[in-house]
């Protein structure tokens, strides 16, 4: 998987953003909320790489700091949704009776667009990072449940599972050591996509003004503040937007890469192989 340039690129982007945002306070003295009214809406320069915003705050520093919230929300939501979805999916796929109950709940939740569901939840719970994580985790787990359940259904009638039963293995052992490890790849792939979608959703919620507290820099908050200045100071919206695009793109590419690496039937790989063999025998 690491041999593909595209995967290396996406891992590189993600690492760069993560390291930059974690170490931000070490290499920069400027606080992301330092206000200087004399420096309002300056265009990018050597001093302020990404320019400044309407309060004279440095957009480069703010964009870097904003990655913290986005990455934390994305990562925690991915973990929460994956965990919930995997547990419910395993149960639904394995036990017929639980299946009908869990899947009806999941179907009901999937009837709402995930973002609308999260919107309603955040509106009810109030906007804080923790609440956004709860809301998004809740909105994204049904998709994971479906995927895990489908994978379990595929695997559970395979003979080695029946063979395991004849040795007296309990359901728990069968689920954790026979089924789960064999369906890990779709879970990891979907987890990566959930990560990306959660970042987008968090940005959307913040943009709509019901996300993270506006004093905390997040990409969504910055875009919201920037929207009235879009024609005067385009850099104000371009750079936080670029942050979202790069992160989400990198995550999606990584997800694709993992899928290709795990799935022997992936089309892209086949194409590549065909090309290679054609070159070989040309």
């Amino acid at each position: 998987m690491l041999k593909r340039k595209r995967n290396l690129l996406s891992i590189g982007i993600l690492l760069l953003i993560t390291i930059a945002t974690i170490t931000a306070s070490l290499w920069s003295q400027t606080s992301p909320s330092f206000i200087d009214p004399t420096l309002r809406l300056l265009s990018p320069s050597s001093e302020h790489w990404f320019g400044t915003d309407h309060f004279g705050r440095d957009i480069f520093i703010r964009t870097i700091y904003a990655a913290r919230v986005s990455l934390i929300v994305g990562a925690v939501v991915a973990v929460v949704a994956t965990f919930l979805g995997t547990v419910t999916g395993l149960i639904a796929g394995y036990y017929k009776k639980a299946d009908s109950i869990i899947m009806r709940i999941v179907d009901g939740m999937l009837a709402f667009p995930a973002l609308i569901l999260a919107l309603a939840l955040v509106a009810a719970l109030g906007g804080s990072v923790a609440n956004i994580i709860i809301a998004l985790g809740f909105a994204f787990w049904p998709i994971m449940t479906r995927i895990v359940r489908a994978a379990v259904l595929q695997v559970k009638n395979v003979q080695y599972i029946e063979a395991a039963k004849t040795t007296g293995a309990s359901d728990f052992v069968i689920l954790t050591t026979y089924i789960l490890p064999n369906i890990l790849s779709p879970i990891i792939v979907q987890g990566t996509f959930t990560f990306a979608r959660a970042i987008l959703a968090e940005a959307a919620l913040s943009f709509l003004g019901i996300g993270v507290n506006p004093t905390t820099p997040t990409w969504g908050n910055m875009l919201q503040e920037a929207q009235i200045y879009i024609s005067m100071a385009p850099w104000f919206s371009i750079f936080p937007g670029l942050g979202i695009v790069l992160t989400v793109l990198a995550l999606n590419m990584l997800g694709d890469g993992i899928r290709d690496a795990f799935d022997p039937h992936a089309k892209k790989q086949l194409k590549k192989r065909k090309k290679v063999s054609q070159q070989k025998y040309a």
């Binding site: 080695y160 490890p181 064999n182």
Partner: peptide, 8 residues
Amino acid sequence: MSSLNPIF
């Protein structure tokens, strides 16, 4: 061929 868990 399919009676053993392929990943262990």
